[in-house]
């Protein structure tokens, strides 16, 4: 098996080649901290979807630090930028979930349509069962056509059980049944797949709140984790998504999917900065083991190799 860094590096190849090579190009040319260099760096950061505000702040820090440190050398400036990005992510405990704090440990997976929730659940089910945890998945997406069948394929691949209901059933009822089943079957981890929903749909967000309430009534502290799945290609709307979903179902962590493309996922910087949410996992492909725990240092190292 590839090391984490290797895998991340290969998955992030595209991100690196466009973002970092761009920065290298700019920095290498640099004789000093002139406006052109800074503008070039700013451009590269903006092109990563980091968002205006975040980039402004990072650039301000970079200017200050670089001139304070008398850093006019290309490599030095890059180091300072790296440090700065690191600090944007630090302060929040990122990384994988510790599912041993409760039994069953209940994870609800939410997000907008097409973010990659079901695929992520398949990968998580696989991950936890390789850790010798007994896993159950619940198909609470009773709305989208063939969502249950899709999850069913994944759970077969992962070799875990499923609880599902008829299309159109109440998702909260599915969650309730799944929780009952998880308790009686001595399940360690229950993964709940919810329907994709845009955060602007009030009634669908209320539905999410209801699912959580039903879970909590049955089992204090549940759901123990609510993971918001965000497509790496998402632009500034990602921040709004994170804010709105947090209102309906307090998000405990993020999963960034589709980082194996050219999308840079820079919006996570803004989400972490503004909402203090940890990033738990990243998705790097369509295979069942294409999921890695998020690690800020590695993530940034991989960005700047």
């Amino acid at each position: 098996m590839l090391s984490l860094l290797q895998k991340l590096s290969s998955g992030l190849q595209k991100t690196r080649s466009s973002l970092v090579e761009g920065i290298h190009r700019v920095v290498n040319k640099a004789r000093g901290l002139d406006a052109e260099v800074l503008e070039g760096l700013e451009e590269q950061l903006l092109l990563s979807d980091m968002g205006w505000e975040t980039v402004e702040q990072i650039m301000e820090q970079l200017r200050r630090r670089a001139s304070a440190a008398n850093a006019f050398n290309a490599e030095e400036i890059l180091q300072i930028l790296k440090q700065e990005l690191n600090e944007q992510l630090r302060g929040v405990a990122h990384g994988p979930l510790n599912t041993e704090t409760a039994k069953p440990y209940i994870i609800s997976v939410v997000g907008v349509n097409g973010a990659g929730k079901t695929t992520t659940i398949g990968k998580l089910a696989h991950l936890f069962s390789t850790q010798e945890r007994k896993v159950l998945v619940a198909a609470a997406d009773t709305f989208r056509a063939a969502a249950v069948e899709q999850l069913d394929v994944w759970r077969h691949r992962a070799g875990v059980d499923i609880v599902h209901a008829q299309p159109g059933a109440d998702p909260a009822a599915v969650a309730f049944d799944a929780l009952k089943a998880a308790m009686s079957r001595q399940v360690d981890v229950l993964l709940i797949d919810t329907a994709g929903r845009l955060h602007t749909k009030g009634n669908l967000m209320a539905e999410l709140t209801k699912v959580n309430k039903v879970l909590e009534r049955q089992c204090a502290g549940a759901p123990h984790a609510v993971l918001l799945v965000i497509d790496a290609g998402t632009g500034q709307n990602g921040l709004i998504q994170a804010k709105e979903f947090t209102k309906a179902a307090p998000i405990t962590g993020l999963v960034i999917t589709k980082l194996d493309g050219t999308a840079k996922g820079g919006i996570v910087f803004s989400i972490v900065r503004q909402l203090g949410l940890p990033i738990c996992y990243i998705g790097l492909g369509e295979k069942i083991d294409d999921l890695e725990p998020f690690e800020p240092e590695t993530f940034i190292e991989a960005l700047f190799q």
């Binding site: 466009s18 903006l46 092109l47 990563s48 979807d49 907008v112 097409g114 497509d231 790496a232 290609g233 998402t234 632009g235 500034q236 709307n237 990602g238 493309g261 050219t262 999308a263 840079k264 820079g266 919006i267």
Partner: peptide, 12 residues
């Protein structure tokens, strides 16, 4: 294309 796509829309 997803209407929420960010900067990467250009590349894809």
């Amino acid at each position: 294309a997803d209407g929420m796509t960010g900067q990467d829309a250009v590349n894809t």
